[in-house]
Design a protein around this nucleic acid. Structure first.
Lengths: 149, 149
DNA sequence: TACAAATAGTTAGTGTGACAAATATATGAA
DNA sequence: TTCATATATTTGTCACACTAACTATTTGTA
């Protein structure tokens, strides 16, 4: 296999990832979800893990701290999340879904799953397992850390 | 396959694509390439196709027009690209690699290929074919879809 | 106790991505 | 010819990614 192909696959990977995000974002918008795709990822993780710190959440969703700070800012402004000062550590916050945030997650969850499903038409479960394996291999090659799943 | 399983791919895909880009960008930076990963993609395509219009180039690299305008602006500022008014159509430009741009592509090409290769360690040709097939299927599943339902 | 080092989070700067709207020019049909 | 429409590119706005630098606290160690 020639080196040129490696570069081509990097291009395909980037192009597909952007398309997946763009498609979901369009559906979010037309459905008036009132959150972006990335904001949704954060909300969903908060609904599954209460009282996370921003650092813990950043590790869960694989976003860096400045990005997470701004996403949390926006979610607070929209009233879905609250920052609660950590009782023992004044540098840190415990993130808390508001009632409105919980309701948002409940309302959107099935709709998001339906949107995500669209990408897998004409593909089966074996494809999915292969895809996951290859993506994780690539990630590990460049990260040097193990990924469990 | 359950819907929850389906939903994981978008996270893994996004995470991996970002890692691939981030790794390459770090290498570009430490090697003092003087261009970003996206700027490189544009330069490389210009070196393979002279006198493209911005619209033609946008279709080649799958970037939208405003994004491309700004990347071209930066490459012009760096002296690697020139906009030449189209002789028959004053709305349009013909994009031209300067001498400096040609030299840059020549110098960087082998280095970029080497960087790209790193992502594909521990994967074989069958994996590449599968990966390409799945990425392209996903892309097509989501491409050209209307927002309304 | 003192103080350097580590940690949590924010701010700033640059680049990119998506989308909408604006500008300038070209084209086609009445 | 003239005017509506199409095309090429730019501008504006918001969101996200990454880096670096910064503030405020906490912790480790002498």
């Amino acid at each position: 296999m020639t080196q040129e192909l490696f570069a081509k696959y990097s291009f395909l990977l980037d192009r597909t990832a952007r398309k997946v995000k763009q498609y979901a974002q369009q559906q979010f918008k037309s459905g008036e979800f009132d959150v972006t795709v990335d904001q949704w990822l954060v909300l969903k993780n908060l609904s599954e893990n209460e009282l996370l710190s921003q650092t813990e959440l950043a590790n869960l969703v694989f976003k860096d701290h400045p990005t997470l700070t701004r996403i949390i800012d926006l979610l607070c402004k929209k009233g879905y999340v609250e920052r609660i000062t950590h009782p023992q550590d004044r540098r840190s916050f415990q993130l808390h879904l508001t009632e409105s945030g919980v309701a948002k997650v409940t309302a959107l969850k099935p709709k998001v799953l339906e949107i995500r499903e669209k990408a897998w038409e004409n593909l089966n479960e074996t494809d999915f397992e292969e895809f996951k394996r290859i993506l994780n291999t690539i990630y590990q090659n460049l990260d040097g850390q193990t990924i469990e799943e």
